[in-house]
Design a protein around this nucleic acid. Structure first.
Length: 414
DNA sequence: TCTGGGGTCCTAGGACCC
DNA sequence: TCTGGGGTCCTAGGACCC
């Protein structure tokens, strides 16, 4: 049996945890740049605030219902997530952390899963303050279904018989299934397939033709045949990217250089932390696609590196070369994206036949930067082209303190 | 004025190999 | 007049996830 543990309204729950005056009150968390709603407490859902709602368009509703608003604060959420996961590992050795607020649990050989599930749930809630729901079923796809049902009942749902599965799936909207996105949902509903049970009654050949092997796996899992195993080891990443919209639109080359330097520097740190090197760098600019009155452009370029690297200096130089080649005067850009691809482990770097490279891929300068920045705070030592005015940075008007990751922000009691 | 960020997997088709 | 067979690798595009 597989379990799926999922934190309820995770980001909103994290914010509320340290400000209990918001318990029982509507809370929303906004995306970067305070753009749109990405998490809602139950109270906010009841009021009708939609996932993805654009903040400035719902300001009236927020005021009218006195909804508490927070900018997203990933250091806090990451830290709380780690605490939840640590607690869950006490209940089974088989755990796959699937996202910041979810994980799959292996429960093969366990008995009395209903009461065990309640023990798991209440322990996590007691130790972390984050409410979770737990779905348990014979396959991952069904565990996802069970989890959603658990949220509407006692917080734990075990699907351990064909009858229970059939009855839940008959009332389960097909578009809510794990693996059914917008496109497939649209296609299925047009054909009159509206529930998960109807989907699994389709012939498997149709599923294979129209939804590829991925759909076939899901179809089998809906019938209780496990096809998607737990992934207990972390695969090495294949690509990494840093991409962020600016706080304001800009066509200014100097500002784009600052932002590109800043993003690629961050990416370089990530690469070194994961102990891998990139074979190529992609730089992409984007205009504001929501504004039809602006001229649109999405230029991008991929530059192959002579040999894989992860040092800040070479990566910055390559990314700026890319920016120089794609920049177009006269456009207002909203975002720059830098991506590292062809990642390989640091220890497996092969040099080009003609490269003149001394020492190892880790250069001394990057090493010193990492040390300084981790000791004195990030950004202490940085490449000069990052600039120091940085007028393009994120808007985060409603940021909460770093309760759990910064000594200065720790909660004081009298 | 203001609309997120970071990933994965699969398939088809083209280039290339012997 | 007639033009093989069996493969691999890479990329772009399209789907999906949180």
């Amino acid at each position: 049996m597989f379990g799926l543990a999922d934190c309820n309204n995770f980001y909103a729950s994290c914010e509320r945890l340290f400000q209990p005056r918001y318990n029982g009150r509507p809370v929303v968390v906004l995306s970067n740049n305070d753009g749109c709603v990405i998490a809602r407490s139950n109270e906010a859902k009841e009021i009708g605030v939609k996932m993805g709602a654009v903040y400035y368009q719902i300001k009236d509703i927020i005021e009218q219902h006195d909804i508490a608003v927070f900018s997203s604060h990933y250091t806090l959420y990451g830290d709380m997530s780690a605490r939840v996961m640590t607690n869950l590992t006490r209940f089974t050795p088989e755990i796959e952390v699937y996202s910041i607020d979810e994980c799959f649990l292996g429960f093969s050989g366990y008995s009395n899963l209903e009461s065990y599930g309640h023990l798991v749930r209440s322990t996590v809630i007691r130790n972390t303050g984050i409410p979770i729901s737990l779905g348990i079923a014979p396959t991952k796809v069904l565990a996802k279904v069970a989890n959603k049902s658990a949220k509407k009942t006692s917080g734990v749902m075990v699907l351990d018989s064909d009858e229970k599965i059939k009855s839940i799936l008959s009332a389960y909207p097909v578009e809510d299934l794990w693996g059914i996105g917008r496109q497939y949902a649209h296609k299925l509903i047009k054909m009159g397939i509206e529930t998960a049970d109807q989907l699994r009654s389709l012939p498997i050949d149709w599923v294979q033709t129209n939804m590829t092997i991925v759909g076939v796996r899901m179809w089998r899992e809906l019938w209780g045949e496990s096809c998607i195993p737990l992934e207990l080891t972390l695969d090495r990443k294949k690509a990494m990217c840093t991409s962020r919209a600016f706080g304001k639109l800009t066509g200014d080359y100097a500002e784009l250089r600052e932002a590109t330097t800043s993003y690629i520097s961050r990416l370089a740190v990530k690469l070194r932390r994961e102990k891998c090197c990139a074979n190529a760098i992609t730089v992409k600019l984007q205009t504001n696609r929501f504004n039809p009155n602006h001229r649109q452009a999405f230029p991008s370029i991929t530059i192959a590196l002579q040999h894989p690297v992860n040092n800040t200096h070479d990566l910055v130089r390559t990314a700026l070369e890319g920016l120089r080649r794609i920049y177009i005067r006269g456009y207002l850009f909203q975002k720059v994206e830098v991506m590292a691809t062809g990642l390989i482990p640091e220890t497996e770097v092969q040099l080009n036949m003609f490269s003149v490279y001394k020492g190892n891929v880790h250069d001394k300068l990057s090493e010193v930067m990492d040390k300084m920045n981790s000791h004195y705070g990030s950004g202490t030592l940085r490449i000069a082209t990052e600039g120091d005015k940085q007028r393009w940075t994120l808007r985060r008007e409603f940021l909460s303190p770093e309760y759990t990751t910064n000594w200065n922000d720790i909660i004081k009691t009298k």
